[in-house]
Computed example of a mutant assay.
Amino acid sequence: MYHAIVRSKVRALWRVTGDGSGNYHPAVAMAAPDLRFRFIGDSVLGAELRGPEAFADWFEQANRRFPGMRLTLTDVVVKGWPWNTTVVVRLRIDATLADGSRYENEGIQWVRIRWGRMVEDTVLEDTARLERAWQRQELATSGT
């Protein structure tokens, strides 16, 4: 029963944070004071940071760089108990870039939750595809 509740809450959270509106606040509200967030890879969104404030800053940057980006949860797996829950999410990412082209990607998120607070969040995405999209975005917005 616990796993079904967590899956439902994760799906609801992704419906809000992934709808393209830029509303990342519910995700930041789940962050524990010692949250460790990593976006793996050398890309414009690559990061390794700690704490809810830095997490919120990362979301703000991501939303500025890719406004309207939509994140659709396609699968979620939950294991563990309230004091040490692991959630693995598979995501589909899509956006319309400033030049009118489409950006599509997929990613995996690995989250550890302790008593309802996110203590670890690691995201893996195809960073080569992300970088190509960022280059197109930069060209379109820089006017060159």
Rank of each mutant, 00 (worst) to 15 (best):
Y2K: 00
H3I: 07
I5E: 07
S8R: 07
L13G: 07
W14N: 01
R15Q: 15
R15E: 14
T17A: 04
G20Q: 03
S21D: 10
N23W: 05
H25D: 12
A27H: 08
M30R: 15
R38M: 09
G41S: 10
L45P: 02
A47P: 03
L49G: 13
L49T: 07
D57F: 08
W58V: 05
W58D: 05
F59P: 03
E60A: 13
E60G: 13
Q61H: 11
R64D: 14
F66W: 04
M69C: 06
M69T: 00
T72C: 03
L73S: 02
T74M: 05
T74S: 12
V76T: 14
V77N: 07
K79A: 15
W81C: 00
P82S: 11
T85P: 09
T85A: 04
V87R: 02
R92D: 06
I93V: 02
D94T: 08
D94C: 02
T96M: 13
T96F: 06
A98V: 12
D99S: 04
E104C: 08
N105M: 02
E106N: 07
Q109V: 13
Q109M: 05
V111M: 14
V111F: 11
R114D: 15
M118P: 06
T122P: 06
R129D: 07
R132N: 06
R132F: 02
A133I: 09
Q135H: 09
R136E: 13
E138Y: 07
S142P: 07
S142N: 08
